[in-house]
Write a protein that binds this DNA or RNA. Sequence first.
DNA 1: CGGTGTGAAAACCTTCACAGCG
DNA 2: CGCTGTGAAGGTTTTCACACCG
Lengths: 254, 254
Amino acid sequence: MATGRTHRPATRSRGIPEATVARLPLYLRALTALSERSVPTVSSEELAAAAGVNSAKLRKDFSYLGSYGTRGVGYDVEYLVYQISRELGLTQDWPVVIVGIGNLGAALANYGGFASRGFRVAALIDADPALTGKPVAGIPVQHTDDLEKIIQDNGVSIGVIATPAGAAQQVCDRLVAAGVTSILNFAPTVLSVPDGVDVRKVDLSIELQILAFHEQRKAGEEAAAEAAAVPAAATRGDSADQGPDGDVPAVMPA
Amino acid sequence: MATGRTHRPATRSRGIPEATVARLPLYLRALTALSERSVPTVSSEELAAAAGVNSAKLRKDFSYLGSYGTRGVGYDVEYLVYQISRELGLTQDWPVVIVGIGNLGAALANYGGFASRGFRVAALIDADPALTGKPVAGIPVQHTDDLEKIIQDNGVSIGVIATPAGAAQQVCDRLVAAGVTSILNFAPTVLSVPDGVDVRKVDLSIELQILAFHEQRKAGEEAAAEAAAVPAAATRGDSADQGPDGDVPAVMPA
DNA sequence: CGGTGTGAAAACCTTCACAGCG
DNA sequence: CGCTGTGAAGGTTTTCACACCG
């Protein structure tokens, strides 16, 4: 994280711990679903279950935002949606550019999740002249040559890199030079950026490797259990904490 | 994660901390690059720089695996590649199924990173009959009806879910019932699974929201700085820790 | 001498458990 | 009475700093 896992050396982001920030989007999603079903209030227990965390953690997380609950009752859904949105900076809309319109870039461009919550695909950029002008998800692809102008004209501060690993650092440098200060990197490379620029990476092969580690461990345990005792039947015990923070997941070779 | 972040309540996975496991793939990638350039040995300082972490952390991480370095010299690249691969379970190959062959599923299927490191796309599965039989990335798509048979025939224990959010839990239940014990979830939903099943999630909109939070904070600080004092020039200070472990990042609406 | 390996300290995050408010 | 909000305890992760070895 993901990630994870996550970000600058330390951070006193107006006091909200990084681990809490990473969970706010989760709460927001669960709250949005409740809001759509017109549920007026929710308890920490219910909301925690919907978000896949435990209720003590959720209450602690919310305590960093302020006292938005009512004792004996719970939280007002609409009000919390607003407070979390504001905290995450989603009350404004963020223009985003996607660089690298291959399979993955196209998938991202077509992805509906942007529009819904504060993000807008301002431009698609690719180095292949054959793509230039072709519409993907209704947006014409522009050529890398114009990257700086596109960033500046649209006031973009968030960039998504979906290029091959070899091109990522170079693209990153140009994005940063043009004024981008937050980068979501899908290329399997460590990007080096100046202070003050945030990078989050999404890396498919890392996630798979972490799964393989645990899978292997399970196989070992199973063998040991078989040799020694009664195999335990799997009972549905709701979930196992999901996601890296983190740490971290994305797309390309190791 | 996305990290983040990550996995079971605790874990004494033969003693290796979860945070360390999440970084092993990073080290492995950096080592593989060195290996390709025929570099024989590397110091913790150099390798840490290549992986984007600090050297104390790296040495501590490696200390959980054993004493694989040579004092005064560093680590033997080939040897470390082997040890980490073994630890991660990458010396065997893992058949993987991808369920949901939309834009994202197709991108994943076409992604070269599988083959290279221990993973093999055993099958592509989609609920749309119009897709059945059509090759994607050279592999014919099979229908959801045959999911159980496909899992069993191929001995699949790792599944990737790239369906819309609404279908994810149902697909997950079927994968688990058929014997899958590790799931990489790209759908923006919290999956509920029995004990003993690992889930990692990759969620694009969560990652973007975390970036937006920091972006907003920067804007606020900037304004404060402008009002109060000399704006600091950005000097290239290599990187800011990347990625949620976990945490982890993925694809669909909030 | 140079760089690993590691105890010990510090920082951070999660969980417990309960006081206190509506 | 029920549920939030939170100090305090417990656990994990990171960082420090240095002993030790090749």
